[in-house]
Design a protein around this nucleic acid. Sequence first.
DNA 1: ATGAAAGCGCTAACAT
DNA 2: ATGTTAGCGCTTTCAT
Lengths: 328, 328
Amino acid sequence: MKTTIYDVANKAGVSIATVSKVINNNGKLRQSTREKVLETMEALNYMPSMMASALTGKKTEILGLLVPDISNPFFSEMARIIEDRANDLGMSLIICSTDDSVEKEQKYLELLRRKQVDGFIIASPLRTKESLKFLHEEKIPIVLLTQDDPELGCPSVSVDDFKGGYEATSFLASKGFKDIVIFAEHAHSSKMRIVGYKEALETHGIEASKTSIYRMTGIIENGYELMKQLIESNRIPEAVFACNDLISMGVIQAAREKGVSIPDELALVGFDDTILAKTTVPALTTIAQPIQEMGKRVVDVINEEIKEGIRIEERILYNPKLIIRDTV
Amino acid sequence: MKTTIYDVANKAGVSIATVSKVINNNGKLRQSTREKVLETMEALNYMPSMMASALTGKKTEILGLLVPDISNPFFSEMARIIEDRANDLGMSLIICSTDDSVEKEQKYLELLRRKQVDGFIIASPLRTKESLKFLHEEKIPIVLLTQDDPELGCPSVSVDDFKGGYEATSFLASKGFKDIVIFAEHAHSSKMRIVGYKEALETHGIEASKTSIYRMTGIIENGYELMKQLIESNRIPEAVFACNDLISMGVIQAAREKGVSIPDELALVGFDDTILAKTTVPALTTIAQPIQEMGKRVVDVINEEIKEGIRIEERILYNPKLIIRDTV
DNA sequence: ATGAAAGCGCTAACAT
DNA sequence: ATGTTAGCGCTTTCAT
């Protein structure tokens, strides 16, 4: 049998209340008692069950993290930062990949709710405001990551997508390109990037063509397929702005396969600045998100909500940063 | 207040036992009763607490996954497969990155133990057999991933590292290279890869030089630093066999920076076959691990241990596969 | 300073 | 077919 608080109490010759006090380091105890209990705990290799203590109203010290796909380097890099910070604060992470699917999102939200996670960090595109609203009403801490929704009334940590889109496009336009297309995601974040894209085009006096905005789920295959199609149908643009690094990889692969040289015949700007941007060749010019800061900050925000029980309403925006490498 | 089983029982006009029965779908109930309860559960948006039910001896449906670093694409790709399979079986994943540190490993093991995870999947190098043995004695299901330890007596899912090392080296030798060095990890897996490396050298009548085996933690920086050093001190080998894709990326970067052409002046074989191998240029010739199969299998094994309560003693070995691309 | 006891939300005998 | 009740391992209030 697993050793419980009773075993410790018995062996130490005290009551379970006393043991509980030394576990939680509260209440007044004689130093000698505390030590004796500590020793027996050690000797019995006792580990308090968090399930039991969670049942009595304490926290589970578990956070739920929803991402579109943990195997996307952007999210795994982010997850790593979040994990570390959460761990500093004594919390663990349950990670769920939703694949942009409403069903999975619903399912995971419900599951995590049942597992009594202390809070949710949601980095996957919000497909169902309904379920989120519900959680929100139940006063379960939620913070949005990589997206922002004024309606929901919950804090968010994201990058200024408008600015990112604007800068990427502006950079391209300043290099003299006119025919700039955008490969955007279905995610919320892409909406504002598209707006930034249009704005930059306008600033540079370029007319946005109706057929230059493509939307897709942000995986390599989609970037690859679309680029290939464009090349094959002889609709090669001068430049593409891809809304994440994965899509950019697809573009690079299609271009190489079809013998279209980057940056000579095609310029490319990505978004995220993951490991992929640094290891591909030509190295990817991309809009960097401050993953470190965002990851750390998001857990600090949720931690505050959890520990203090207060509702924070801050929507934190970070500045994206253009990293110039070799694809333009 | 959160709605509990009592609320449902009250509203439905039945006892909590009845509600419990419909939740768990057992016991004999009149169809009409079941429906009535189901309806009230729906109406109240009731979600049974897994904490409470775990306390009564049921499972938590949570698995602990220890990896060296979730931001390493090999592990995030693996984690994704594991997550999906676990989810099929109704389980969630707590992911912990240990960074090859004994302290973190200990700490996470203890933490997850306290959180009553149903089982552990351990893909991080085993630094402390002690704590693992302890868990093992407590009959908590453990399965080793990416490593194998006969002493521990727990099941494992791994790739035949000897064979992988042998094939990588053999391939290089067959191309006529004599001066082949190996960049190995500190991880357990590298041990057998080194043995395979030596064996292949011998088979091809090449004498293994004492100074051709380097060990490091498997991150880009280390591959980069070592390769740079080698180039700067004019000790450029004909070929390097890097024990993971990350190290390979470092080698590629150092070579490019120093103007050493791959594959013309330096041949390179990696290990893992992650997304990086496909997106870098020249695309990496590497030893592929069957991530899909391994990930799926490892959760099936642990699931069996958990659900059936049986001790499985199988050590499953997959065959690595040489993927020829452009670095040799 | 320490202990007794109630209760957290649920399950599983055992009664009815 | 349904209900009563005793735990599960812990926290916390209230006595002592």
